[in-house]
Write a protein that binds this DNA or RNA. Structure first.
Lengths: 136, 136
DNA sequence: TCCTACAATAGACAATGTCTAAGTCAAGCA
DNA sequence: TGCTTGACTTAGACATTGTCTATTGTAGGA
């Protein structure tokens, strides 16, 4: 993620304190924060940052393909900075913990042509649900 | 779905006009309505029905296992009456059309133990995304 | 038919997300 | 270094989706 700022700058992204802080918050493995959580953490580093800016910046990062929107939670969207390695998600039904996982094979292959209804399929999203060791 | 009302009555579900109407609205193949859409259609049949009742009834049907909550849409939950045959969903990225699909194999098998992080996995949700023939 | 517990209602409230108008500032350029 | 400009940020109103509560209504049994 440290080179994210470089990549963005290289793409002509205007660098501001707010954008830098949002990008910094989205750093690490197994990070899946909601927009509100991102805002809460960003405020610690930059108290003036507004909610709208966090939403805007997250939206831009998603458009740029640097961050993935994840819908594991029924309430709020979550943002996953691990956009450059394809992966799926494993969610604890009790505490909501989320892990990135890497299944074997291509999940697309499991869908025969007869089940594609003429669609041109471009993406598959898989969410495994269960109970994590802490909650078991 | 015609026997849904029978099944519910058999389980001691108190039958009311509102509940009957909600159940009737959720009839058919490839039905994936939002709560609001269910309400809109229910109002046609029973103008007095309230939003809260639709939400309550949908929640009860989900608890009873007669209807499945689907999160293909980032905005609102959708309700799928096809609860008795396991299936996954295929969504058009343009128009939002949703089809029930039946992939081959068990998607659970694709996740090796080393990728389970000690979780006890009970469920997998797969959403295929693409463009439908109408939008292509 | 009458009772009673369960269901439905209206509307307030909560959570999440979007939009707008006005002010601010990063980055290029003289 | 000091302008200029258009992109960025802000506060807060608004929209959408969903939940809760107090009150009223009613299904189904006695």
């Amino acid at each position: 993620m440290s080179d994210l700022l470089e990549r963005l700058r290289g793409r002509g992204w205007r660098m501001t304190a707010q954008r830098r802080v949002v990008a910094e918050v989205l750093d690490g493995e197994h990070v899946h924060l909601t927009a509100d959580e991102v805002h809460a953490r960003a405020v610690v580093k930059l108290p003036e940052i507004s909610r709208a800016t966090v939403y805007n910046t997250l939206g831009e990062l998603v458009s740029l393909g640097e961050v993935i929107e994840v819908a594991t939670d029924r309430r709020a969207k979550r943002y996953d900075p691990n956009a450059h390695r394809p992966h799926q998600h494993l969610v604890c039904a009790r505490c909501g913990a989320i892990r990135d996982v890497h299944p074997t094979g291509n999940p697309l292959a499991a869908l025969p042509d007869s089940e594609r209804f003429g669609f041109t399929i471009s993406d598959v999203e898989v969410t495994y649900r269960g109970v994590c060791p802490n909650c078991a």
